[in-house]
Design a protein around this nucleic acid. Structure first.
Lengths: 152, 152
DNA sequence: TATTGTTATACTCTATAACTATA
DNA sequence: TATAGTTATAGAGTATAACAATA
């Protein structure tokens, strides 16, 4: 029992960092130059698309980072013209964050390009193997979702 | 066909970053303070354990980073007393990198502690679900191994 | 000339602590 | 007092470019 658990755990620790590295590289290459997006920026944009008008603290909780870090990330996105930041009239301490049209576009492009690269890699697998993966990924999501911030 | 591929690719893009974040957080918490290890440092130590005497360029290629970055990472590990760096007598441009006993110990501790945390998360899954994961992880490894540097 | 490694410079992510403004 | 957000400071990872030493 504990053996299988250990095996899977170690497997995750072995395979996740390199895949993460691959994703990061692809996002850097794809959106190289002008509209380069980092992973945290990407996740921030994706979060804001799903939660328009969210505040900085919400972004921080979602990413599992501090308010200070979230504030920095948002600041850079605002400077790049990808995020709109307005004071909430009903709670003037709070900011309402939304995607600009440019932010929406950049997010779409980055997401699409990166997904194509990942697809090219996964294309090496057989249909049956893809099914196994398709079954496994939701399990990871459900296992980690209670430990991680909501709205992956 | 392409639908399943897209689904799995997007699933990976959704689930990998948060898991990576979890791993990073745990490694930071576990080895907090004195012997704190970052993921790149961790991977560097693990690589040097498997490839004692490797040169800086080998580390760079393995991690998919530049020589400059690898040099920085190694430098910090040397300063922490975790890695030994000696000029290769037969090729004086090259450095022979090895783990110190302390580096070996720290690597073991970090690996063990982080794996325990991941196990605790995976413990939410049923035995059957664990089997699915155990089947899936090697598929990811094989799919990405040709795109990524060797010796994950 | 080509290769190994370091240094210089710059940017992003990250944290903690201190701060401002608002409630 | 408590909360939302920013700023200050510091350290790590990352890249490119320039460099020194060696081959």
């Amino acid at each position: 029992m504990s053996d299988k658990l250990s095996y899977v755990a170690q497997g995750l620790l072995d395979v996740v960092p390199p895949i993460m590295h691959f994703i990061r590289e692809e996002m850097r290459r794809q959106s190289a130059g002008a509209n380069a997006l980092s992973i945290p920026q990407f996740r921030c944009l994706a979060f804001l698309r799903r939660n328009p008008g969210a505040a900085v603290t919400k972004v921080a909780v979602h990413q599992g980072i501090t308010k200070a870090t979230a504030s920095d990330i948002v600041e850079r996105l605002v400077q790049q013209g990808l995020v709109n930041r307005q004071i909430d009239p009903t709670e003037r301490r709070r900011h309402r964050l939304t995607l600009t049209p440019a932010g929406d576009q950049v997010l779409d492009d980055a997401r699409k390009a990166t997904r194509e690269q990942v697809k090219a890699v996964l294309n090496r697998l057989s249909p049956a193997e893809l099914v196994t993966l398709a079954d496994a990924l939701p399990l990871l999501t459900s296992a980690f979702q209670e430990v991680l911030p909501p709205n992956l």
